[in-house]
């Protein structure tokens, strides 16, 4: 049954808050792997805007190109053609040095495997990006993050002494410490049980609502996507749908619709 909240790509400007400017943009972004016969179009001319101060989920089945899109948006991988922007900076075409600088100050990452450094305490892990950039830690902001993420008692613990959910919360704090323009989260709940997963997603949402951050999350889980303000569906390297204020059901329905399309 298709009680769809699935909406075809709306015209520009249907966003609920018209005053906001896009934090991240992609224009005709394309990524191909291989040559000739074996060529695979992982991303096929994607145009998309991500609004600042919003929590957006990119959802799609395995191999849809959702991870590739995120890598390109974040400047982790180079595009075959097209452009991507963070704020007014064109990410495509930056050299490694500039990209490193960009990652230090303007982008944060949350990984599926947490990727905390095992030899450092939670606090050292959180403040590492600022230190690498040679800056000083904003104590007040650190306090706010620690309070919001409920890490107060865990700061002196090492990752091996923390649960998966706690580790991921440390990772979120690390991603936010430099007050970046945007945080990319790659399947942040993929390695967590459902309770810890829900907790982490709530924290991500709170970071957006209470701290005014911009988060772009890649996931294949409709329940996780439902925490976002908006879900962008992707299939076969193309944008296949856009859901505003999703619910688990609407997200799942969108995903199902993609599968049906793919199956046909």
């Amino acid at each position: 049954m298709d009680t769809t909240v699935y909406v075809p790509i709306p015209d520009e400007g249907t966003a609920a808050r018209p005053t906001v400017t896009p934090a991240v943009r992609a224009r005709a972004l394309t990524k191909t792997y291989g040559r000739g016969e074996a060529q695979v179009r992982a991303l096929d001319g994607v145009d998309v805007d991500f609004t600042a101060g919003r929590f957006t989920a990119i959802m799609g089945p395995s191999g849809s190109g959702k991870s590739t899109l995120m890598h390109l948006l974040a400047g982790l991988d180079s595009a075959t053609s097209g452009q991507s922007f963070i704020g007014s900076t064109e990410v495509t075409g930056l050299n490694d040095k500039a990209l490193t600088a960009l990652r230090r100050t303007r982008v944060g990452f949350v990984f599926q495997q947490f990727n905390l450094l095992p030899m450092f305490t939670a606090e050292q892990n959180i403040t590492l990006p600022v230190e690498l950039a040679g800056g000083t830690v904003d104590k007040q902001w650190l306090g706010t993050l620690v309070d919001t993420l409920g890490l107060g008692k865990r700061l002196t613990h090492r990752p091996s002494e923390l649960s998966g959910g706690q580790q991921q919360r440390v990772a979120i704090a690390r991603a936010l410490i430099a007050q970046p323009d945007v945080v990319f989260a790659d399947e942040p709940t993929g390695n967590l049980d459902s309770r810890s997963g829900a907790e982490v997603l709530s924290f991500l949402r709170r970071s957006v609502r209470e701290l005014g951050r911009t988060i772009i999350m890649v996931t294949h889980d409709p329940a996780a996507a439902a925490y976002a303000d908006r879900v962008i569906l992707i299939a076969d390297g193309k944008i296949a749908g856009d859901i505003t204020d999703p619910t688990p059901e609407s997200a799942l329905a969108g995903l199902d619709a993609l599968r049906t399309v793919a199956a046909r």
Partner: peptide, 11 residues
């Protein structure tokens, strides 16, 4: 990971 969170090649 370190590269992703801002460690430069030189570092």
């Amino acid at each position: 990971t370190l590269r992703a969170i801002g460690l430069s090649k030189g570092q």
